[in-house]
C-alpha cells in the first residue's frame, strides 16, 4: 500500500436480504482515497454509493472485502467495536440536516457532545470552543442556544459540519451533504467545505449524484452503477474525455446554459431507460441493457480494468 493512501478499499461487498431477494447494493468495489484529496463517488440513486459510505462508517458490516484506514485500522468491524480514536478521526455529514440533528437538543449540546466524549478541550472552555466552531463554519455565536427547528436548511447543515469538525477528524464522508439544500445555501455550504478542507488538510469522500458539485470541489471522480465502479478519473479528464458510455450518458444529460458548456458535452448519447433492480442485476457489464454500443460480449463477461493512463481507469469492453 502506498504511503499517501488514507483509505484502502478492496473487493468490498454488501448485500441486503429483502422480501424480494438479495439486493447486491455494493458488489465488489476497490478504490483508494489519498490524504488531503476530495474523491467523489457518483451514481444514480440505487447505485450503492451511500451504502459504501455507511459501511465505511460501520453502520453495518461488509459481507466481504477489506477496508484499511491509515494503514493500521481494519474498518470491517462494526461501529460499536471500533476504538474511540477511530470514532474521532472519521466523521460523516448526512444528507438531510433535518433528521441528522436531534430536535430536542440545543445547537451547543449537539456540537459539544464530541468535544466532551473525546476530551478535546477543558470542560470549562466548552462554550467558547463551540462558539469558535460556529464562527469557523460561518455562523454567529447566537446559534448556540437555538434548537434545530429555529434554523434554516443551510444553517442546519453548517451546524452538522461544525459537529463533524469538533473532534478534529482527518477524514469526512459527505453523504449527499448538499443535495437537500436550496441552491443559495448549497453554494455557501460548498464554499465552507472547501475552505475548511484547505485549512485543516481534511480528506473528503464526497458521495453525490450532483455533477455540478463534483466539478466544483473534487479532484478525482469514481462513477458507480448497480454496485460496481465503472470509471475512475481525475475530475478534469472525467468531464473532458469521459470514456465509459454510462459516464457519457450522465454528462450529456446535464442541462447547460452557455454554448461553451454545450460544446464540451458528449454528443449522441441519449439517456434511455431506468437503473435496473439490484436484486437481479444484468449479467456481464451491468450497463449493457442501456448501452447504445453494447456488443455480445458485454452481456456475457464482466469488463476488465482498462488503464488508459496512470490515473484514468475504465471498465468497458469497447476499449479492449
Amino acid at each position: 500500500m502506498q504511503d499517501d493512501v488514507i483509505l484502502y478499499v478492496s473487493g468490498l461487498k454488501k448485500y441486503f436480504n429483502t422480501t424480494e431477494g438479495v439486493v447486491r447494493a455494493v458488489d465488489g468495489i476497490s478504490f483508494n482515497v489519498k490524504y488531503g484529496e476530495t474523491l467523489a463517488l457518483v451514481g444514480e440513486s440505487g447505485s450503492g454509493k451511500t451504502t459504501t459510505g455507511h459501511v465505511i462508517m460501520g453502520f453495518y458490516p461488509p459481507d466481504d472485502g477489506k477496508i484499511i484506514y491509515k494503514n493500521k485500522y481494519e474498518l470491517s468491524v462494526p461501529m460499536k467495536k471500533r476504538p474511540l480514536e477511530l470514532k474521532r478521526d472519521i466523521q460523516i455529514v448526512f444528507q438531510d440536516p433535518g433528521t441528522s440533528l436531534n430536535p430536542k437538543r440545543l445547537v451547543k449540546d449537539i456540537i459539544s457532545l464530541p468535544l466532551l466524549i473525546h476530551k478535546i478541550v477543558d470542560k470549562k472552555k466548552i462554550y467558547e470552543r463551540v462558539a469558535e466552531l460556529l464562527e469557523y463554519v460561518g455562523l454567529s455565536e447566537e446559534f448556540m442556544f437555538k434548537y434545530p427547528h429555529e434554523l434554516g436548511g443551510g444553517e442546519k447543515q453548517l451546524v452538522a459540519i461544525a459537529r463533524a469538525l469538533a473532534p478534529q477528524p482527518s477524514f469526512i464522508i459527505l453523504d449527499e451533504s448538499t443535495s437537500a439544500l436550496d441552491v443559495s445555501s448549497q453554494a455557501k455550504v460548498l464554499n465552507t467545505l472547501v475552505k475548511i478542507q484547505k485549512e485543516l488538510r481534511l480528506t473528503y469522500l464526497l458521495i453525490t449524484h450532483d455533477l455540478g458539485v463534483v466539478r466544483n470541489i473534487s479532484q478525482r471522480v469514481m462513477i458507480m452503477y448497480l454496485g460496481k465502479i465503472y470509471e475512475e478519473a481525475p475530475t478534469e479528464k472525467f468531464f473532458k474525455s469521459p470514456m465509459h458510455p454510462y459516464t457519457q450518458m450522465l454528462l450529456s444529460s446535464i442541462p447547460t446554459l452557455s454554448e461553451e458548456d454545450e460544446k464540451i458535452k458528449p454528443k449522441g448519447i441519449e439517456s434511455i431507460g431506468e437503473i435496473p433492480s439490484a436484486v437481479k442485476p444484468p449479467s456481464g457489464c451491468r450497463f449493457h441493457t442501456r448501452c447504445p454500443f453494447a456488443k455480445p460480449i458485454c452481456s456475457q463477461q464482466d469488463p476488465p480494468d482498462i488503464v488508459l493512463d496512470s490515473n484514468h481507469i475504465v471498465r468497458c469492453w469497447l476499449y479492449e
Binding site: 453502520f59 470514532k87 464530541p114 466524549i117 459537529r163
Partner: peptide, 9 residues
C-alpha cells in the same frame, strides 16, 4: 441523529 451520536462515540 442517533447514528451521528453513536458514530462519534
Amino acid at each position: 441523529f442517533i447514528l451521528a451520536a453513536e458514530s462519534q462515540g
